[in-house]
Design a protein around this nucleic acid. Structure first.
Lengths: 200, 200, 200, 200
DNA sequence: GATGAATGAGCTTTCATTCAT
DNA sequence: AATGAATGAAAGCTCATTCAT
């Protein structure tokens, strides 16, 4: 961030700008977002935008970062309250939760997901993976003490990427031959069988 | 396509343009490709480009389509000559093949993969899935006659998307903690355990 | 230059653009010249400007260069036809010629002279100095054979810079206490006495 | 100036602003100086800047004026203590002094010199000339009583402008073929021979 | 008086597309 | 059919200046 705001209304401005950016991405898609559009959506001048962010990219990154933290926090709270000792159920509910997330918030998450490689989402993915990894270790320690799982970090890398992209792809293409429930079921099956493979 | 070229000269032009587009994407990246650059690379005028394609998008679509057919054809030939009756080996070799494909061809496939959602790749994915589906049915009919696999088309939808994106993500980010072999192994494990789940 | 024009009308365009740039500098001053103004003055679109020149700076440089060559050529022709074997007269007439040059052509030369250090005028100055140097050597060889002048290149460096800037300064400030003729006289005196110093 | 500050606080502010302007010109160059940068450098708000100066230009003018007075005063003190009755030596030492001035003080004087025409330097030049004129009259009255020098004010106009610009040009361009000492020598020669011309 | 957030006209530059030749 | 010069809307960004606090 370019400037550490010193008055309260600056905080307001930062919020307004990020919110406007989110709205613009939802409305126009990431490719068509422009600084004039963001400024207009925020009801401020272009100049103001550049008082707070070095450039357009910095603004979008701020949005992503803010969102990631928000989403992960919510997801953590969600997972904690899952009352399931069963891997299948945890996975299924998590995927379900992910679909809800992608489905709400207009196209925002979808746009982010689709533009993956041009956004600083790697950071976000790493956080997610780290989180899953911790969670996974705990879970497996508790339920499958006998066997430590090999390569857990690679497995989670593969699961996270596979799942996110398949979900995103499904959401963007409105495939009429497959229902969302089916995708949830099958993804769950895939993940669970993968993790339980070699397990007695 | 604007025009169904029926003369050899036109066919030649179409080929040249598509080839030039491929080279430009490889050289500059999809974002930086411009019609003047393509025309220059092809050694023709911009005007000619627009004689054969309505717009830039149409030209890129043509490239994708042509490429898909080409790649699938090559892949089919590759699969046929795999001398393996073992699911694990088939999957492993196919993924290996995919990595080779992404790795070679300059950046072309990688650029396509990364820009997935902005390209008419759905068509391509559908073709892939159709192909896999046919292949899968044959394979399972032969080896696991006893049990028809439920939801095979969904399973392949999930496998194709999961695999392609994970591979692409791996190729674009140069993750130093994970090796390509590990990704091949784990993806293979995931797919195989998924397909063999519920199987005695 | 960005593009080697391949059609005749391109040559026309290049001329038009340079001419328009000259007019704009004359009209608005170098600081206030903008690409839209140049394009408008030329009666073409901004885009055309960028087809022929990489950027605004390149266009201005082209103008300077063209002008330098033009002016030096004219000056050479002027000097040749001075029928004077007398140093004083040659210098006086040259300065007179310079004033005429600065005085005509709207403010163009004046603006160039004033913005000296931000323009690629060094090249131009070097050309001028080289020219003067050759001329000077010939002149002194002819008239003052007995004594070679020491440090002729430095002397010309000092004379060229002193004269050009004093003239420019005089032209821009409209000093009411000094007349142009007086400046011509005194500059001539200074130069001549400088060059004839130590001479019997 | 917008406001004649009569309180000490204001005097302080004026000084601070001018000093900050000088620092900014040294640091960024005249072209890249902005009012926010000046305010920041001064440790005050932009608003305050505009409380004391109508606009950026006025502030820079104030800096120039203050500096001129300061420099001239120092120069006077310098000249007084030159113990030389010889014109050559006085001129030489003065030019030497000027080079030291341009060379020190970061880029400030150089920037001023280079941007000559956009700054209210005329006033400064006039002051210099006035000073030199007085000095010159005294000097010539003392040493060359017999002949009053004609056109002394014009001669000094020409000398001041010639010298300042040649020095500035030399400082800004780092000409590798000419040394500073040579420039000092030749300028001195030029000025001295000019002033002593027609003198027995 | 002092602040500094907000402004917005205006700059340079790009590139898909057109159309006279 | 082929050409490529010309287009111009629109992008990202800057900064002197203002004015509500």
């Amino acid at each position: 961030m370019k400037k550490r705001p010193q008055q309260e209304r600056s905080q307001q401005m930062v919020s307004t700008l990020i919110e406007a950016t989110a709205k613009c991405i939802s409305k126009y898609g990431l490719d068509a977002v422009t600084t004039p559009k963001i400024a207009e959506m925020a009801g401020v001048s272009v100049g103001s935008l550049y008082q707070y962010y070095d450039d357009k990219q910095a603004l979008i990154e701020a949005l992503i970062e803010q969102n990631t933290h928000h989403v992960i926090k919510e997801f953590q709270e969600f997972v904690i309250q899952i009352e399931a000792e069963n891997l299948d159920e945890i996975v299924r509910k998590s995927i379900q939760y992910g679909f809800n997330l992608l489905g709400q918030s207009d196209r925002l998450f979808l746009e982010i997901a689709k533009n993956w490689h041009r956004l600083p989402v790697q950071k976000m993915v790493n956080i997610w993976q780290g989180y899953f990894l911790d969670f996974g270790r705990l879970f497996f320690a508790k339920h499958y003490q006998s066997h430590a799982i090999q390569n857990l970090h690679i497995k989670f890398y593969i699961i996270v990427n596979s799942t996110l992209f398949t979900m995103m792809q499904f959401m963007s293409s409105n495939n009429p031959l497959i229902s969302q429930d089916e995708v949830v079921n099958e993804l769950t099956d895939m993940i669970v069988s993968y993790l339980q493979q070699n397990r007695s």
